[in-house]
Computed example of a mutant assay.
Amino acid sequence: MERLVDYLAPRGPLDWVLKTALFIAAINGLNLTVEFAMNGALSMSLLAHVQTTSMVAFPFTLFALSIIRHQHRLQGQLKHLATTDMLTGLPNRRELLRRLGEERRSFGAFILLDIDHFKRINDRHGHAVGDTCLVRCAAHLSGSVGPGDVVARYGGEEFAVLARTRDPAALEALTTRLCEPFTCTVAVEGLTVPMTLSAGVVRADADLGYAELLRDADAALYHAKDTGRNRAVFAPGRPAA
């Protein structure tokens, strides 16, 4: 049903005209078929029959297409809500894992990131400031990746990046950009909060399964935190050069 609505929903003026004509032609064809089946002949000329049917079908066709278009918009809104983190505007964990499962072989690496000492920010400044810092972190990550890379909020203060590149040097340059210290300025509070990130990186070159990829990234992230934070560690625990 979702695919049918997506196909039938008008998307522009020309599409409205074409689909209205298609609907009316289908109604005319159905009406002619029924009349021939019941009576064996038309009760009026073909032209008169088409004109009469089209006049009756036109307003009902517009009404039906309007409902379909409204349903299509609702489906788009529901999909957006289901796949987007409302605070940061990034894809959420559900959407990230869907893409990781369906498109894993098109990505070169999976990077799991965590804001260092984020609990301190919430404890010292409150959750409103913490939320502002999460939004700032999302902007920092989105501005650091390349075309085709995917940035998502993994959960809490954790983010993830699906990187397209398979070149080791380019991947290390990317992780360096991602882990560069940055600040979050909270205008209302008059605060400037310094922020750093730790990262665990798994190259997708190895034939790792879905669960193993997540497990190794998580282990590398914890290793990065245990060995000083504000750094990237490549699984299985090898620091980036």
Rank of each mutant, 00 (worst) to 15 (best):
63 F>E: 13
84 T>V: 12
138 A>H: 09
45 S>K: 12
12 G>A: 07
3 R>N: 15
166 R>C: 05
205 D>R: 08
207 D>N: 04
216 D>F: 12
121 I>E: 01
84 T>D: 05
91 P>Y: 01
22 L>E: 14
107 F>H: 09
115 I>E: 02
160 A>E: 08
67 I>G: 04
86 M>K: 10
136 R>T: 15
20 T>H: 06
95 E>L: 14
180 E>W: 00
110 F>N: 07
3 R>M: 07
1 M>R: 07
240 A>L: 10
143 G>M: 05
35 E>V: 05
63 F>D: 09
114 D>G: 03
133 C>P: 01
70 H>E: 14
22 L>G: 13
96 L>M: 08
75 Q>I: 15
196 T>L: 08
50 V>K: 06
221 L>M: 03
38 M>T: 12
137 C>R: 01
207 D>W: 01
108 G>K: 10
14 L>N: 07
122 N>V: 10
70 H>N: 07
98 R>G: 13
163 A>H: 01
187 A>H: 06
54 S>F: 00
98 R>N: 09
101 G>S: 13
183 T>M: 05
229 R>F: 10
59 P>F: 08
125 H>R: 03
34 V>P: 01
33 T>H: 15
49 H>P: 12
16 W>Y: 03
121 I>T: 03
227 T>N: 15
71 Q>C: 11
54 S>H: 11
211 A>P: 00
